[in-house]
Design a protein around this nucleic acid. Structure first.
Lengths: 250, 250
DNA sequence: CGTTGAGTTGACCATCGTCAACAGGAGTGG
DNA sequence: CCACTCCTGTTGACGATGGTCAACTCAACG
């Protein structure tokens, strides 16, 4: 495969996530994220309405969904995979403000200017909406607006949690909090309990926690030595989630 | 004055902010925050509706407006003074997640559980609403709901800015960012340009920035030695805002 | 005039960042 | 097929930034 052009258009990469279902009128009904995120507020009749506005896409790892500072013309819901949300400073430092997973909505604020870059970490399925069409639909559906607000408020709550992590915790607490939080979020989708897949790099984790790669690596191997977890090729298996949770809560 | 009981009821401390205007039907019309925050979305006719729902209050410094984890039965808009929003961890560490100023709304998420404690830093004027009444009013006013969502999204944006501060900046950058951001926010209300009043303690600033009091103090006196600012009894006067802004942006 | 709490300053030290080296895997090209 | 590069992850040695502990000043208050 040739190297992906991260700065090119992402619009027509693998345009249909699952061609088999995509043509059917019951596409949204069959969606694994049907009861997650914004869609959970929709009646079946509304589902078919919104189906016409959304375009399902499958994006490869490293594809850019949104770029910080640009004009927003699309919003997304994520149905599979993981997306990295980041801010970049003039000097090149990066802060990852969150990892989006299935059920999450990108474009919560609907404002003209995009607040952060969003990049696929692994292969990602999304539903894409034109911002204009989506906001018009919203205007006709007050309960959807309420749901969007609820999601945004939840996100704000989450952001404040992360401020606590960044502001008061040491390296051990940060990494423990990261693992436990990610586990809890994934558990709501799957019922994965002990295996936490880490699709992102150590660098990503570091940029999320305000640590260097080296510190993240050292901390994880320390946890492994202490039999709190096992490092696997694709993530970690938590051996003592309770103790980790305790460290996370400080 | 006797010591304020921070854990007692705050409901009937100085119940009316400005008795002279409070009785009038034009109370909201005369409000200094009329065009700030959520009220800016209201027509004059709606203003008089909401006037009946709101109770203006004047709270002394150190009064508690909201307490983390409790059930929410009221929401506020702030019309004067400054409020500290904080999370407290089991071990007693504290993260201040923000400082609210006139125009800000407390209770953006409307959820049952309160996300953070809110305490008056100096004497504060607020309009208090019963949550139930307020949400019922919201349900009848879609554009108000949209405005609330806009404010929440703005708050989320702000939270992400602060994650960057906490995650990537060193002590100098943090303090510079704090001063510049506060100045910019106050400038939108007053037109104060160089004098930044700091009603909060150094401890508060430290808990906001993830630093200790000592580091905040040292950094500020260093800035003073470098002629970037002058420390005054009630805050700082910025001598070189441009250089500070540069440090803040790293 | 004694107490309290905020702010400042100094000395010391721990945590985490920096720099460097190396291992292992994936993709590339001879 | 193998050598090559590139990237991620890991580990070690060292040092700087910022935390800890302590002492002191000063203003407010009773």
């Amino acid at each position: 495969m040739t190297k992906l052009d991260l700065f090119g258009a992402v619009h027509d990469l693998c345009p249909v996530a699952r061609p088999d279902v995509a043509e059917s009128e019951t596409r949204c009904e069959a969606c694994g994220s049907r009861m997650q995120g914004i869609c959970s507020a929709l009646e079946l009749t509304e589902l078919s309405e919104i189906e016409h506005l959304s375009k399902p896409l499958c994006l490869p790892a490293r594809a850019a969904l949104l770029r910080e500072g640009q004009d927003r013309d699309v919003v997304y819901t994520i149905t599979a995979g993981m997306v990295r949300l980041s801010r970049t400073l003039p000097e090149g430092q990066r802060q990852i403000v969150g990892f989006a997973i299935p059920g999450d909505f990108l474009g919560l604020d609907l404002s003209r200017e995009i607040a952060f870059s969003a990049e696929a970490i692994n292969q990602v399925n999304v539903c894409r909406f034109q911002r204009r069409e989506f906001t018009e639909f919203l205007a006709r559906k007050p309960h959807l607006m309420a749901r969007l607000h609820e999601l945004t408020a939840h996100e704000l709550h989450h952001a404040q949690d992360h401020m606590v992590v960044l502001g008061v915790k040491n390296a051990d607490g940060k990494v423990a909090a990261f693992l436990i939080n990610l586990r809890d979020r994934l558990a709501k989708l799957d019922r994965v309990v002990v295996n936490v897949p880490l699709a992102m790099t150590r660098q990503d984790i570091g940029d999320y926690l305000g640590l260097t790669v080296e510190t993240v690596s050292r901390t994880m191997t320390k946890f492994a030595r202490q039999k709190l977890l096992v490092i696997t090729p694709d993530g970690v298996r938590l051996l003592d989630p309770d103790k980790l949770r305790l460290m996370a809560e400080l």
